[in-house]
Design a protein around this nucleic acid. Structure first.
Lengths: 210, 210
DNA sequence: ATCCACTTCACATGAATATGTGATTTGCCT
DNA sequence: AGGCAAATCACATATTCATGTGAAGTGGAT
């Protein structure tokens, strides 16, 4: 039997979902509250449910803030966001905060039920549009590399040395070359990358722009 | 009518999926090939399908390599991975390469059909386990910040200056303070972060460890 | 009232870096 | 055979950095 809690300030929606889920054989939904604050209060005094459905727009603390606080105190509670918001920021903030799923509010009651089951099976329920946004996040175009910045392998070696925080001397030692050679390489690297300090090379490298 | 192509080397699976999809009223699946190479050859000579189902383990080029090449030449083709692999690397490599969906091979034929429809509706079909892994990727614990490394806001300013590749002099100018003050801040920053060079500060900052 | 962290500035010194100019060797391309 | 990029080294110099020591004003905390 899966214990489910709801945090949702719209009474009609809240009651509808609660009644539907509580009606299911495999589920029990006894707690449906208005705000994160009330839910925290309830969790303090009662056994924690296994799953929380949570809105974002709430009186008092937002649902996203709520995730962090709840997950910190009760790491075993799985939280599914159920909201009308589909902008990337809210999605990512929720996921980073620890949400295990993200559904849009047009999701039908049977789909919500399935989502909870998916979650209990180790899956992550997401509305398809949400999944799309999440995927697009990976598809972000790689930072533009300067076309003329194709460093030779030796130059790459030097850059790696710089990123490792080595001085010219130590880089020279590492590759068993003269410090003047290191200097020469670095001059060429600066020219190719259009920079003029170690700092910029390191920054570019760590940003993947080399 | 959605045109679908398949790249899959297992003949039985390939034929099964092709026949099933081609049987659907809204779909047409005329092209089912063995390898990315063959598919590229086919795309050269024929109209491109709207959706490709693609395996990863293939003769010749892997499906993941294939995504990049196909998406580059034919950006409008949507690619759904259909594979037995569920390790994070293959998932992320696929998504980064440009896949629009990722299904595990135990997915039933009707579910594959639904996934294609989801894709055409602007969604991103993913098996629940895959979605879980993707979400866990966001949930990665933030890099450990040094407890004593709480920089003051002024110190943060200085760090930002360093990350931007500015010299002490330029940082001093930017904030309209003396270069000696910049030096003083930097000394304190080094102490707090336990480092002793600009390079390390920049590295830490870009890694989010500040 | 005292303490402490933050911010500001100054002076000093040795080490590291940025930049210029030049040269030699090797290997690839034509 | 000649040209050219890459890699190697040398010498020189002005700037920047890392580090030490010291100090003074402000504002919050005990």
């Amino acid at each position: 039997m899966i214990e489910i809690g709801i945090v949702e300030d719209n009474v009609k929606i809240r009651n509808l979902i609660q009644r539907y889920l509580d009606m299911q054989e495999s589920m029990s939904c006894k707690v449906a509250l208005d705000s994160v604050e009330e839910m925290l209060d309830h969790l303090d005094k009662n056994d924690a449910p296994g799953v929380l459905l949570m809105d974002i727009q709430l009186p008092g603390m937002s649902g996203i803030e709520g995730i962090g606080i709840i997950k910190k105190k009760y790491p075993n509670i799985e939280i599914i966001m159920l909201t009308i918001y589909h902008d990337s920021h809210k999605i990512f903030d929720s996921l980073v905060a620890g949400a295990s799923g993200y559904l849009l509010k047009h999701t039908s009651l049977p789909e919500i039920k399935e989502s909870i089951e998916t979650l209990m099976d180790g899956g992550a329920p997401m509305s398809p549009q949400i999944a799309r946004k999440v995927i697009q996040h990976f598809n972000k175009p790689a930072p533009q590399k300067n076309p003329e910045s194709n460093l030779t392998s030796r130059e790459q070696d030097i850059v790696n040395g710089l990123v490792d925080g080595l001085s010219y001397k130590l880089i020279a030692d590492r590759f068993d070359i003269s410090i003047d050679t290191v200097r020469a390489h670095i001059r060429n690297i600066y020219k190719k990358l259009h920079v003029n300090s170690k700092a910029e090379v390191i920054a570019k490298s760590l940003r993947g722009e080399i």
